[in-house]
Structure formats: C-alpha cells, structure tokens
Amino acid sequence: MTSREPRGVIQLIPDACTVCMICVQECPSWCIAIDSHHEEVSEEGARRPRTVSVLDRFTIDFGLCMYCGICVDVCPFDALEWQPQHDYPAATRSGLEHDTDRLASHGSS
C-alpha cells in the first residue's frame, strides 16, 4: 500500500472474481455484498463435474465505504483495483450503491 494510490473509487474486474468472499468478510464497514450461485461444470476427461461459484451480483455501498482499501489488498485474484475517479455523486442514498456493471465501468472512463 502506498500513499500515491488514487483512492477515488474501487473498480471490479468481474471475470477475475471467484466469489471467495474474502473482501466481504474483511471489510470493516460491511459495505460489500455478493450474491452468487453454484454451477456444475463438466470437463472432458474429468470423472465427475466440478462445482464452481458464479457471481450474480457484486455491490459496494460507497455511502458506507471508508476507502481503507483492505478489500483491494486482500483480494487474492486482483479483482478489485483503485481508480482515480472521484466524481460520482448521487441524488438518493441508494444511488451510492454501485452494482457489478457500474463497478466494472469505473476503469474505463
């Protein structure tokens, strides 16, 4: 962790997320929520199908987030990244809850 990190917003890279829940469990503000389900994947040559977790919804409530960056630090798959954008006001309380698509879009602008 360096002080030069741009702590504007946290970007999610959904393809990298394995639904391990470590970020949710480590978050001191309880501002991350994950919905997921299990799917069986059959692979050729494998004796039985493998069960994988599939991400349905990932939300960060920036109204609760204290920008500590612990989630970014603990993610074993680098699915969370700091991005410099800081300009995301909302007219309602729930507008600060960013869902999967919104979180994923933070890296692109």
């Binding site: 829940m21 949710v24 469990q25 309880w30 299990h38 069960t51």
Partner: peptide, 23 residues
C-alpha cells in the same frame, strides 16, 4: 444487521460452527 459475509448454502454446511464477524 446481518453480516454480509455470513456463509450460506454449501459454505454454511462446510463451516464447523457459526462464526461471528470480526469485531
């Protein structure tokens, strides 16, 4: 509030005992 990190489904069955959130 319910802890968002509460294990559910398969993970709950795997957890040996209910775990309190840190803090």
């Amino acid at each position: 509030r319910e802890w968002p990190g509460t294990p559910s489904g398969d993970d709950l069955r795997r957890a040996r005992r209910p775990q309190l959130p840190p803090g």
